[in-house]
Design a protein around this nucleic acid. Structure first.
Lengths: 141, 141
DNA sequence: ACAAATAGTTTGAGAATCAAATTAAATTGG
DNA sequence: CCAATTTAATTTGATTCTCAAACTATTTGT
């Protein structure tokens, strides 16, 4: 296969992969009776740990105003807590509560199951190779 | 590295990849003054071609009621057209107009640029290998 | 110490989404 | 062949999400 074909095929495959992951996430999340945006927030917090409102808003792609409202609901649902930031009293940290962690872990397990399924027919070597590729791409992003 | 570590590392890397792609998409789309859900719809139509309302709704993860409203707007914006389906007059096909195609192409080009950037330091061989991995995963999905 | 910048919240309006009811067409079972 | 059922899409009303802009509190820079 020539170079251009691989390049555009790769793009196509990545878009398709992304689209399928999106659909999967959508369906999974709905099952748990939680909105996609809330799930996204919990996932970011579980994945990266507690962070400031502004960082989080940027990470999930909403304004801080939107995030304030969202966090309000997640706090009410006891999934998230606000942690005062002594260093800079303008800002606060938001992080998962124990219950939020549990929910995140359950979701994470489903992700793990999906990953295993997707790479079920991969050899150990292939899996390691793929991991390396993803890590390089993630670093470049 | 042992097998479990690769397995969970891979999961982690995939989630991170997905998250970063999401953020990227969010930012790119906003620049074009179009909502994320509309972009998602246009992307599905551009990627897979015209399809029935129900298929499309399922693909993008919304109810058909929501989709009807959304398509209404995209039709008004001249990006999408409704195509009667002679085979089954209950259903209709929706597809991109020429202008919709143009917008999709522009977006697609940005995706291509991103893909190129992400794999800039990959050798031809690595790129081909990665393509094969994605294709296998997409098939399993 | 004052002005400017930054973090977060509040608010009001508009957009997106859903579930349920509705319409229209196709399919199925008798 | 026809009535009943199923399927595809639309409409509607309520709810939720999101944004931009105004606002408060705190920090930073000069």
């Amino acid at each position: 296969m020539n170079s251009d074909k691989v390049e555009s095929g790769l793009n196509h495959a990545i878009v398709e992969f992304y689209e399928k992951l999106s659909s999967w996430e959508h369906a999974i999340v709905r099952e748990q009776g939680i909105s996609l945006s809330h799930a996204h927030t919990l996932e970011a917090l579980g994945f990266h740990g507690a962070m400031r409102m502004k960082e989080l808003a940027e990470k999930i792609g909403v304004t801080t105003g939107t995030l304030t409202v969202q966090i309000e609901k997640l706090v009410a649902a006891q999934l998230v807590e606000r942690i005062p930031n002594a260093q800079d009293r303008r800002s606060i940290l938001v992080g998962l509560t124990a219950e939020g962690q549990k929910l995140f872990q359950a979701h994470s397990d489903q992700h793990q199951a999906l990953t295993s399924e997707l790479t079920a027919d991969f050899s150990e070597e292939e899996r390691a190779l793929l991991l390396g590729f993803f890590e390089r791409m993630n670093r470049t992003f």
